[in-house]
Nucleic acid binder design. Structure first.
Lengths: 352, 352
DNA sequence: TTGAAAGCGCTAACAG
DNA sequence: CTGTTAGCGCTTTCAA
């Protein structure tokens, strides 16, 4: 490979010193260099195709304009990927590059990743999870790192997580507003329960209470987090006697909602005529493709990803320390799976 | 921030020179340094928590052990993400780190990304697409870069793409082996047609020919690449007169297959009893969750991702130049949507 | 076997 | 205003 062209080459061609080139190319306005000189330097630099060596610069300035992005997985859903894309876009917008490392959640690998990244002199770390979790932050994670889709079990780190409770409120309120009073929560059955499960439950209960509806424990069911589990769990409430049967389902996620669709079909109910359904996650491959398209709550992955790097780079104010993680709003996405409750006496009909 | 500890600190503590430390820590066997000295240096280094500054090292050695990964998107399907995870894992296995940049396919951004990464002195580039495409490689992409899920329109770059034709062969052969002779290809309707569309068609026709089945043009239909499109397209063949109607569907992708399921249901057909279906992509959120679970063909994302960085880093032989892209096999994933063709005279029955 | 010295390409004081 | 000088932390001849 031929020698890379450096600042000296520019200096020689432009008839100035290397220092001047550096000054010009970095817009050091403190040293008012005459416009003509600047112009000449820039022209020469462009002509001979000069590009700074950021290693050398970083060595000197102790700033690399790179950030370490360590996450458990890259993504499990197509939407979570937005988190990374948005983070990368925000990094670029601020003149930074992202080192991506996924550790599979292995603490040993996390250690190693952090060490490697520190050796690279990254300017900061984003520590990301692909589900809203409470995490034991790796002890070697430097102060000032920011957590993405994760809240620290302990330690004082800026963190951003989805407002799961608020999202649930929006979802259930949508159902209440449509006139429903018997609303089931088809929860996820996982141990330990994900944070989102409890938060969404809280939102669900909050709306019921505000609407003066007494929660019926029989309407809170749990199933495996997939279509089969959702179908099974939804079936349980759909088989309740007519007077206790829900007219609407708030599902923990879209996959469960997908199962709920199957259960409804199996019970001869049509959506949204006989049964309204709201999901969560807005997984494009599911929510939009279900028949009818599913009303659901979107996770603000992109917003969170951007937030994290902007806070890290100081492009956005750090949240005041002791206020807990920032809650990013989860917008309700209205599609066609919510309608008014059916008029009495005709649930469970087969084709007319 | 307190001064970082460097090689000099180790040298001082160990009572040797910086050069010796470097020699020991880098296993320069040419300089046979006595075991005791080595031991002492290593111990001190560990004790005081020395970690090399890779910028300084890179500046000196002109090797950064980083690689630039530029892709159009990060991922559109949850599986494509495996490509990046696998690439990152392979990089780590070879002591490298990945700079991730997604450009949205914007040539201007690509230029910029390549320049920025070059300024970072990356050791090499992976240029990735999220669909199997023929790409105009950006003119500034250095020779030696490797293409991932993309074949160069021109230029000589190592490249790896899925063996779409082979995957289609496996899929359709599965159907033929089950006894089907009237097999439709529910293709994608997109302009320009993705490479995969034609390749899978070729595979489809190849199997038919080998099985002595004359292709019926009416059985090659196209629909939008989503469930609705798949449903609509599948309906068209399902509504053919009984003697021309297919008993099996080979779908361009799993979303279309999902629509085919809906169409089958709508026509009162059960899968796989009345109709067999095979998809493509093995999108976990769809394929495994459909009822019944979908037999499909998996895209070898992880294998391709690993291949790309291994070739880039020389951990695997470069394919000989003029042989075109490497075709990575697409394995058939057998689930429950394929069965023997129905015995005559009872398609379209409603519930018994 | 080890240390001294010379940079890698750049920035930042400090002179002039 | 601009050039000289002195490193950033490491590797690598070369000499001792």
């Amino acid at each position: 490979m031929t020698r890379r062209i450096g600042i000296k080459d520019v200096a020689r061609e432009a008839g100035v010193s290397a220092a001047t080139v550096s000054l010009v190319l970095n817009d050091r306005s403190s040293h008012r260099i005459p416009a003509v000189t600047q112009e000449r330097v820039r022209r020469v630099a462009a002509e001979i195709g000069y590009a700074p060596n950021t290693l050398a610069r970083g060595l000197r300035t102790r700033q690399t304009r790179t950030i370490g992005f360590v996450s458990d997985r890259i993504a499990t859903t197509p939407y979570a990927v937005r988190m990374i894309e948005a983070a990368q876009d925000a990094a670029r917008a601020n003149g930074h590059l992202l080192f991506l490392v996924n550790t599979g959640g292995d603490p040993e690998l996390e250690r190693e990743a952090i060490a490697t990244l520190q050796a690279q002199q990254v300017d900061g770390f984003v520590y990301a999870c692909m589900w809203h979790r409470a995490v034991d932050v790796p002890p070697t994670l430097p102060t000032g790192s920011v957590l993405l889709d994760a809240r620290p079990v302990e330690g004082d780190f800026p963190a951003v997580v989805p407002d799961d409770r608020g999202g649930a409120v929006a979802a259930v309120q949508e159902l209440v507003d449509a006139g429903h009073t018997r609303i089931a929560y088809v929860d996820i059955d996982e141990d330990p329960a994900p944070l989102a499960s409890g938060l969404r439950l809280a939102g669900y209960l909050e709306v019921l209470e505000r609407a003066g509806i007494t929660p019926d424990p029989a309407l809170h069911v749990r199933g495996e987090s997939d279509a089969a589990g959702g179908r099974e769990a939804a079936s349980r409430v759909l088989e309740l006697p007519a007077d206790r049967r829900p007219t609407a389902l708030f599902c923990f996620n879209d996959r469960i909602a997908m199962g709920a669709y199957a259960a409804a079909r199996h019970h001869g109910m049509e959506i949204p005529t006989d049964l309204s359904v709201v999901g969560y996650d807005d997984q494009q491959l599911i929510a939009a493709e279900l028949d009818p398209p599913l009303t659901t709550v979107a996770l603000p992955h992109a917003e969170m990803g951007r937030w994290a790097v902007e806070v890290l780079l100081g492009a956005r104010d750090r949240p005041s320390a002791e206020e807990g993680p920032v809650l990013m709003p989860c917008p309700l996405i209205r599609r066609d799976s919510v309608g008014p409750p059916p008029t009495r006496q005709q649930p469970g009909r087969r084709r007319a």
